[in-house]
Design a protein around this nucleic acid. Structure first.
Lengths: 243, 243
DNA sequence: CTTGAGAAAATTTTCGAAATTATGTCAATC
DNA sequence: GATTGACATAATTTCGAAAATTTTCTCAAG
């Protein structure tokens, strides 16, 4: 039903590859050739190419005619733009969710927050957080997705999902901690509190504080360039390993 | 340079077809088979299919595995959702444009408004506006695009473009006048005035009044169902002609 | 008259090869 | 020595046909 011969379905490949695009596996600007992933997914290059085309439509890949596919360029400006974009959508979605969400929704939000707080407290005591980044990314998404889930507009929720993905793509390309800091824990709690009190403006401020706390990190790095320009070196090295 | 053999480039086909998707040529839910347009564009079905995939990523087409491509479904709910989505992005974009726009930008906005007011006054005196809808759509887009152009976030401007296209797709599928009414003229003028005064809140209200004036039309039709359910009949008939 | 199984038809998707375009190399010239 | 042009190489994109899937049609049973 889901598998064809020995390969995976295009839909599964789409989901899988999107996860890789926003988890920092590839460096910004890196060229991605479809036939490079043929064996890995057991599909023809054309089928992979079609998945890439769809990801291009979602701005998670770029393409120039006759130049192939590339990872989108990353920059502080782009990070700020996608941050503001996501903030705009998430604050509005949360506002609408506060108007429509019932007790069931509140309960699901608490459940999602509990999972998130659990893993984040664990990360806080780990020396290397890199291995848990993919699972943390998923749980972080689940929390913000539950927050939006009581918003009745599917259009807005799907746009928010895309903004989340694009923001994360910028974050993992630029920030050495992949977006996690100890401050993240009370920030998520503040969002939960604002949601409980149905205070849209407080929630907007909490989300903004949550997202913009990355800026401190950027300033720190800019004044303390011990390890080069950031996370890209690690990323590139990881790529060399796998090829 | 732009043409290959006898056909057009995929990029040109993409632009052209997107125009057709938001001009009401196809009915909501209609199935669109790539090979149907092979002769028209002088390309293989696969190349057309790839353009469709990209448009799917932009939500201007839908696809289900093994079920081909379809026009997105249209409904009053979806119209309201895309309206709210576009309003959110355009109001924010205009707000930022007010902070960054210079005199040159203001001048371009007046130029765009002049063109728009000209064609809208002409439309107001026409018996059949349908033939000028494509050119009006383009000029209407130009005005709103110039309004956004002083917003420094490319991310937001591109998201707004997509919201405009998706909103228009809903409008032409549902509203018999394709979104044009006599009230449109002073509404555009109100947006221009708010921009001149750099009043973000007034601009937001003007855009909202502009977009939501369609609702009157829906209410009118619902209480006066002289011509069936709306514009779809005309649309479907036009399709039969061409097949 | 409705329902269901099986087969035929139509459609979507995939594939490998061909055509087109970009890139890299090397020699010749200024 | 640097630049330019031609040639060879590599990569991307496109194509038509084959494979896989869904839909439609037929016909018999309840």
């Amino acid at each position: 039903m889901t598998t064809r011969r020995i390969g995976v379905s295009p839909q599964a490949m789409y989901q899988s590859f999107k996860g890789r695009l926003i988890s920092g596996e590839f460096a910004a600007g890196e060229r991605l050739r479809p036939d490079r992933f043929r064996d890995e997914y057991g599909m023809g290059a054309t089928a992979i190419r079609e998945v890439f085309l769809r990801l291009t439509g979602e701005q998670l890949l770029t393409t120039e005619e006759q130049r192939g596919f590339h990872m989108p360029e990353a920059s502080f400006e782009k990070l700020e733009e996608t941050l503001a974009y996501r903030l705009l959508l998430e604050a509005e979605g949360a506002r609408l969710a506060f108007l429509h969400g019932d007790l069931e929704w509140e309960a699901r939000l608490y459940a999602a927050h509990h999972k998130l707080a659990h893993i984040e407290h664990r990360m806080n005591e780990m020396a290397q957080i890199k291995p848990v980044i993919p699972v943390w990314t998923r749980i972080d998404w689940e929390f913000h997705e539950v927050l939006m889930s009581a918003c009745p507009s599917t259009t807005l929720r799907e746009a928010h999902r895309n903004s989340f993905e694009r923001y994360r793509q910028q974050v993992v390309a630029i920030l050495p901690t992949y977006g996690f800091r100890p401050e993240t824990i009370p920030q998520h709690a503040a969002i939960l509190k604002a949601a409980t009190e149905r205070d849209a403006e407080a929630c907007r401020r909490a989300i903004e504080a949550h997202l913009t706390s990355h800026r401190d990190l950027i300033v720190e790095r800019k004044t303390d360039p011990r390890e080069g320009s950031g996370a890209n070196e690690t990323r590139r090295a990881a790529n060399i390993e796998t090829s």
